[in-house]
Nucleic acid binder design. Structure first.
Lengths: 200, 200, 200, 200
DNA sequence: AATGAATGAGGGTTCATTCAT
DNA sequence: GATGAATGAACCCTCATTCAT
């Protein structure tokens, strides 16, 4: 039984890997289900034992890749080494962006498809309660909701700003853009905190 | 002759309008060329007298809609009424976002497809030299290149941050998000200026 | 398994027969793939499981029909009954021409499409080593290459000369043309042999 | 009027030349009427002022090119220099084949499309009564009909035999094939004459 | 559970032909 | 006469989906 279950998991992964590879190299609409199954070494009909259709696979793939990426970023950055909370945030963001820099297909695939809803679910899936952890890490006094708004704003902004920079080097290369980006992130963070303190 | 040429322009616009309507209501991949021509009241073959294929039309449509939107935003906001340069920028951004709020299809269509390259071309098409105007309006001492980076960063960030907010009301409604957004923009602007002065 | 494979063979033949019938009655370019599949009682898409495109089918059809025709001619004529090698050759040619006379569509389809390359392959497919047999039958001392040239010349000449005669009865009917043809063939054969002997 | 008529002739020729060039380089079915008109520097609609459709043009083109080719061959070879009638025939055939050797597109276009009917008409068009001339040149006592059969047989046989040789060099190159061919022609000629004499 | 042959709707594209200018 | 924009039928081909094995 365990053996059978293992086998199914293996095929599931083969299909997802195959799909990811094809989606990012040929584009989603130019990738057929036959392509995906073939690349995975499986028959066309087998696809339908694991996914309802191509759209179903796509959704699952986005969530999967996003949560993997976040988990990896969390495991990379050792938050404890930084005293300044701003530095912690920047370390986390850099960890994510460096992954994208390494794997541009991943960026291309995830970014413009990642709505807040999907992202929040992926975060939770990668590490349930991680948003709470952030609240602990960052010694800002914010409500859960305010923290969510801050994280949302920063993530979306950073993602958008870096998309063309990483993929196209436009309007300037990633390495040159980094200082501008870090300064912008610090400014954003402070804007959320200052606002907080000034409200009190 | 003039009559014929006018007629062709009319058909071109009919096709683009028809395509925009279908792209935003059904999705691009689910819209066939036959649909577009039919909706425009033209024969399928006529499409190919105006566009090379669906992708060609798509590109032209993005650039067209983006430049129209920017031109409209520029004509709406009376920059002279604001003394503070920050206020001018925020007025411009609000003019754009209000258009998106009014026409969500436009946002859905433009945003995730607007690369820096397309945007720059659209800006130039809408109002050549508009970036220079910005430099005049904003009394920050920046080079053309630095101004470009600043505008790029802000546009991308704002666009991304507002996408889900306007379309889904997630993680919070547009009206509630506005104060956070304005504060973030001010912070970003200052980060670019402070950096400038600290360098000097 | 055998059942499935058998079924596929059946469909392959259905498609080829259907195509041959349509090609010869309507012409190749006026025959659509949809026609072929429909006539064969199969769906349009099924065609593409068996052939890459119409050209692929056409090539295979020519080779198939040519080799069948040659095999049939070889089985019809009992070479041993003739002492004179010339008579053997004429018997073989008559066997082919009689087939064409019976099945004019076959002639129309094969003749003007039969290049030497296709013919040689078809010969080899119908009966590998048949050219060698010819060399044995005909007691002329020729090299393999010279035999090839002789066979090529005669086949091409006879095919061409009989095309309009069989199909149109122009410039005279087949039965009336036969004596002229036989005399011409004998003359050609002798020209190859005499040349041989005069060289020696 | 003469000017107008001249202009029409010019356009007719432009269209035929354009068509010939495209037919032989891209293939007939892959050449559209739009292509032909465009290459000729004329508008699509103009085509229909000169030809009923593509098939009409094709027929006229074959007859035109065939008669031009024959006229050229007749003008090239100076029959009077040869005493032997066989030499005269071979000179005529070589004149034709050399044209084909020079202009392989012409061969490719004409050969497999040249039925006896078209050929006879082309001969007559090129030089009415030329067959009669042949009869005079060749001092064989033949009726008009027998001469026709002889010419037909030789032309068809030579054309077919040389097609692959000239175009593909298969089964051997043209220059190497020539001696075999000449011997074959002489044999054929003699077969017609001998038969004649033996009948008498 | 896995296969892959078969389906046929539907897409993109071409192009002969017409006709108002 | 000449034009070329417009047409829409017809074609080739793809592919998601089904289902008998």
């Amino acid at each position: 039984m365990g053996r059978v279950e293992q086998n199914k998991q293996l095929k599931l992964h083969k299909l997802m890997d195959s799909a990811f590879h094809l989606f990012t190299s040929k584009g989603i609409s130019r990738t057929s289900i036959s392509d995906i199954a073939g690349q995975a070494g499986l028959a066309k009909g087998t696809f339908y034992l694991y996914f309802h259709d191509k759209y179903d696979l796509q959704q699952k793939l986005i969530a999967d890749r996003a949560s993997k990426m976040i988990r990896h970023a969390l495991s990379c950055s050792d938050f404890s080494q930084y005293d300044d909370p701003e530095d912690k945030v920047i370390a986390f963001i850099d960890a994510i962006l460096d992954q994208f820099q390494e794997d541009k297909a991943l960026l291309r695939f995830i970014n413009k498809r990642l709505s807040w809803g999907v992202f929040a679910r992926a975060m939770d899936q990668a590490d349930p309660g991680v948003l709470g952890e952030f609240a602990d890490i960052l010694p800002y006094k914010m409500s859960e909701k305010e923290m969510e708004i801050a994280v949302y704003t920063i993530i979306e902004m950073v993602g958008a700003a870096c998309y063309d920079v990483i993929l196209e080097g436009e309007p300037l290369p990633y390495e040159e853009y980094k200082p501008y980006l870090h300064r912008s992130i610090r400014a954003l963070l402070r804007s959320f905190v200052e606002n907080k303190t000034s409200e009190e």
